[in-house]
Nucleic acid binder design. Structure first.
Lengths: 254, 254
DNA sequence: TAGTGGTCTAGACCACCAT
DNA sequence: TGGTGGTCTAGACCACTAT
């Protein structure tokens, strides 16, 4: 529309809508403010609700909106910077590492994890669940897989299950020397259990951080952490203070 | 289905579909094989095409499928591990760093970048575009922002624009001492120009890697690199060899 | 109970690719 | 030109939240 472009290839409506809405968010809305409901918005822009939703989905993916069923659509605050820099030679579970142990089970690891651990597919491993919170909201859920062989002195007496068991496993890990870590980040969608932990619907986009803990050239443990992609920015490097939000976003108008 | 669960909360159809299709991909399809078209698939599963597409979109987001307009839907190969580990104290553009300079322009940086650079919003910066390829396919597009003040000896004589200009800017950068880098990863959607570079449609999900190059405590340059989220896994750490694909995915049948 | 976003349908037309 | 995925419509009903 607006521009005098001949548009040999017309822009999809939802893409144009996304741009218009994005600009409106910058100029006319404050963080936390609720938008009109989807039916009204669609009518206002003269498009079907499905088309409007396509635009909203994009904006939500980019962390600019937050939608909650039964409540409404609100303007999201800038993404939270979450430090995931590798403190080489440090195990998880050390004092104040922002993670909270939740539970611990013992079962065979998923195939992909077993491959990373270099264990047999059916070997049982300790599986510690932890969650990470910042500013009062859950930002990540993790499963930490620890083969029994990595923590030979772990006794069942400590605790058979639950948070106490999780802490016991972490405690045993810290007795090992840690040579280094490999890490990878990729896009995924939240499994049902992670989604519950993160207060999202299943399938929500997440950043999956996979860490392999190396001791004496072998994998001593593997962690798979899923971060909310809508609200998080993973930071590495020295000063974890990268600010990269789109626009100031503190405007207000009508 | 399968389980005898009473399902107090019925699973959405598209979610169930995604699971079923995902399992079929593991057991019945080889990498590169084309699936039946969307209309046939929808009919086969007794759902509307839109519902089927919702499932396909999820699988594509997870890197399991690849869809191309006019061609069809094929089974994607496992994600490529792309090394983005920080070689502290090393500028971009050193010999064989996998990036190919494409172009160079001089213009004011976007607001978010100007903030990172700690420059005035309207200050002109050199903007170098580079692309990164692995195994013959483009995996990332980058914009590298370099304030004129960081490369004072850059002369217009070298080249006014184009790849030669880009190389000249990189060459000048390498004359500076580099103290360190800050890095952040977040989810984004491809702008039109990046999408073209990456052979994707605008809005495609990308992993945005923002790097701030620090010299003497100040930002000497900022790079914003967008990686195809569907095909890439970003690897950090010592051995860039993390394998985390879901399942073997080399089956074949039917 | 009223209002929100989430799911689903059964169509239609368009843009792109191969032939 | 025929077949593919991409966009869009105008409905309907469901699940959830707040009151």
């Amino acid at each position: 529309m607006g521009t005098t472009q001949l548009e040999t290839v017309p822009e999809p409506k939802y893409w144009h809508l996304k741009t218009v809405l994005g600009e409106a968010l910058d100029s006319d809305f404050a963080v936390g403010e609720v938008l009109p409901n989807e039916r009204d918005l669609a009518a206002r822009f003269g498009v079907a609700r499905a088309t409007l939703r396509q635009a909203l989905e994009q904006l939500e993916l980019e962390g600019r909106l937050q939608r909650r069923r039964g409540v409404g659509t609100t303007v999201a605050p800038p993404r939270v910077g979450v430090d995931v820099s590798t403190t080489q030679h440090e195990w998880p579970g050390t004092v104040r590492d922002a993670w909270q142990p939740v539970d611990c089970a013992t079962a065979p690891a998923p195939a992909a994890v077993a491959r990373l651990l270099e264990t047999a597919a059916d070997e049982e491993v300790h599986t510690v669940r932890r969650v990470r919170s910042t500013h009062g909201q859950s930002v990540a859920a993790e499963l930490l897989y620890v083969p029994s062989s990595s923590v030979p002195e772990l006794s069942a007496i400590d605790a058979p299950e639950g948070p106490a068991r999780a802490r016991a496993v972490l405690r045993e890990l810290q007795r090992l020397g840690l040579d280094g870590q490999d890490r990878a980040v990729e896009l995924g969608s939240a499994r049902a259990d992670d989604a519950r932990e993160l207060d999202r619907l299943p399938g929500a986009p997440v950043l999956v951080v996979t860490t392999r803990y190396v001791v004496a050239g072998r994998s001593a443990a593997v962690s798979v952490a899923t971060y909310r992609a809508d609200t998080c920015r993973l930071t590495f490097g020295d000063s974890g203070d990268l600010e990269i939000s789109e626009e100031p976003q503190e405007r207000r108008a009508s």
